[in-house]
Design a protein around this nucleic acid. Structure first.
Length: 486
RNA sequence: GCUGCUAUAGUGUAGUCCGGCCAAUCAUGCGGGCCUUUCACGCCCGCGACUGGGGUUCGAAUCCCCAUAGCAGCACCA
């Protein structure tokens, strides 16, 4: 009985089983190095990671840099950093630009098998033929001719746009997307930052080649790849290779942040964003800067799972995951936004001892010395407020003369403050407050905080009654913190 | 236009394959209460959904058909 109770209590989100996983799995995460990773990438990264951990096996990071137009040389390093931050169990890394000769080899073999041909047709013309389910003249050329043409491609005798390799599929396939799709193209420019080439494999070819060569057993990717999966099966069949198990999860809409790499880049160049880690962006480094933990990101992604329905990602759910992680560890401090200086009449010096964490008394206290005047959040003091309690200190009576308040000592009794429902607010000694800027996605909040916060650099703290924040920088001019969430 | 995928509360998710135990799970959110020198955490109570219409059946969230809506592909991007 107790067993079943605790079982239910510890109910953990488990991903649905994958078939053919008994002997372990080989999976891969395959980003394109066009920029840093964002929350959308995290889904594929986390799901594959979780399955490899569940079944055991290898987890390959494959950098898919086969399109020189979409390669940012700096992104290789950024992707590496982001993956390391996420804490994926990557067991090996391959970069496709290192493997062009493998693809060329396989292409030749495929042509020899009659599974591919070199097409020199004009693009527009080919499209019309395709719509009409008609073979282009190149399709029926003998293998020997195709091999010659392939050699001419490699020798750069064909220029950009003059020839491409196509996979022989089924012209009668009702889906026009399946008919003789391209596998290699020629690009004269731009140069690839990592490899000297003009013949480039297209994704459907290089992906099949590598999935097979690397022994990938299961592929989990977005359903935008569902057509690619069907196309890729033609290549597997031509080679007689075994097809991996595929799962396609639905589209994930993400509100409120910019995710498109090109838009982000543009915004950075124009100065709209401070960089790839601008907190208004959905990059992993932006989340990190705000104090979102990698485990929270992964947990949120696993909770979403691999369903094939289109979903809209909810920040609330991610924040809830993060709060579970951060709340038990974050020290508590006072941050007074938009402070006003107030002198309190009739109060003797007091020393306040506020707990660093109310759930963990062993952590001790911060000490705040009261000596006559304090800083209070302006928004808490408005006509009609007759008493507030300064948290961990004492009560303050407020008397209003029109719009002019005067403050006086109101006793130490917490019970009295409760009795009149006085708000218990954060405060700082006027003499011991450090300038602090809290940056949120909506803008800056200027204020002051406890000096001790300076020792929390790079950690997440909780500003009482405000929310969690990551301390981003500490210097002579003050502290800068990024708002995490409530 | 052609091809394909999907449709459970505000959001995510379980159940759908093998119809009844589902007047539908869990989380998050929201409302209320308790606890508490934070509007955090914790605890309690509540709110809230099977896209619509037909059909099969003793019985349908679950099977079939149609409709509607959303998404994806038809790139020399990944």
């Amino acid at each position: 009985m107790y067993a079943s109770l605790s079982e239910k209590h510890e109910h953990k989100k488990v991903l649905p089983d994958l078939e053919k996983s008994e002997k372990g799995v080989v999976m891969r995460f395959a980003p394109n190095p066009s920029g840093p990773l964002h929350i959308g990438h995290a889904r594929a990264a986390a799901l594959n990671d979780a399955y490899v951990k569940q079944y055991g096996g290898r987890y390959i990071l494959r950098i898919e840099d086969t399109d020189p137009k979409r390669v940012d040389p700096e992104a290789y390093e950024m992707v590496r950093e982001d993956i390391s931050w996420l804490g994926l169990g990557i067991t090996e890394t391959v970069t496709q630009s290192d493997r062009f000769s493998l693809y060329y080899d396989l292409c030749m073999q495929l042509i020899e098998r009659g599974g591919a041909y070199v097409c020199t047709c004009d693009n527009e013309h080919f499209r019309e033929l395709k719509q009409a389910k008609t073979a282009c003249p190149c399709r029926d050329l003998p293998v020997a001719t195709n091999l010659e043409r392939w050699q001419k491609m490699l020798d750069h005798e064909f220029k950009e746009g003059e020839a491409s390799v196509r996979i022989r599929t089924d012209l009668d396939n009702p889906d026009p997307a399946m008919r003789d799709f391209p596998a290699f193209r020629i690009l004269d420019a731009p140069p690839h930052p990592k490899v000297k080439a003009h013949v480039y494999p297209l994704m459907n070819f290089s992906v099949v080649a590598d999935d097979h060569l690397l022994g990938v057993t299961h592929v989990i990717r977005g359903k935008d790849h569902i057509a690619n999966t069907r196309r890729q099966k033609y290549i597997y069949d031509h080679f007689g290779w075994q097809v991996p198990v595929y799962r396609h999860y639905g589209r994930m809409g993400i509100e409120g942040v910019v995710l498109s790499t090109s838009q982000m880049r543009l915004g950075i160049n124009e100065g709209t964003y401070t960089g790839w880690d601008d907190i208004r962006l959905g990059t992993l480094r932006a989340l990190a800067r705000r104090g979102i933990c990698p485990e929270a990101v992964k947990n949120a992604m696993l909770a979403i799972g691999i369903g094939d329905t289109d979903i809209s990602f909810s920040w609330d759910n991610l924040y809830a995951e993060n709060r579970k992680i951060v709340d038990p560890v974050a020290n508590r401090y006072f941050f007074v936004p938009d402070p006003i200086t107030v002198t309190i009449e009739g109060a003797a010096p007091h020393t306040a001892h506020a707990m660093l964490h109310p759930g963990d008394t062993a952590r001790g206290t911060r000490t705040l010395e009261f000596d006559g005047s304090v800083l209070l959040p302006k928004s808490e003091i408005s006509p009609g407020t007759s008493m507030v309690r300064l948290k961990d200190l004492f009560n303050v009576k407020i008397v209003w003369d029109g719009n002019i308040p005067s403050f006086s000592y109101g006793g130490d009794s917490l019970a009295e403050a409760r009795a009149v429902k006085a708000p218990i607010i954060q405060w700082l000694p006027a003499q011991a407050a450090v300038p602090c800027t809290l940056l949120t996605q909506e803008g800056e909040m200027k204020g002051v905080c406890e000096p001790l916060v300076g020792a929390e650099l790079d950690r997440v703290v909780q500003f009482e009654r405000i929310g969690f924040a990551r301390i981003d920088s500490v210097d002579a001019s003050g502290i800068r913190a990024y708002f995490t969430h409530k």
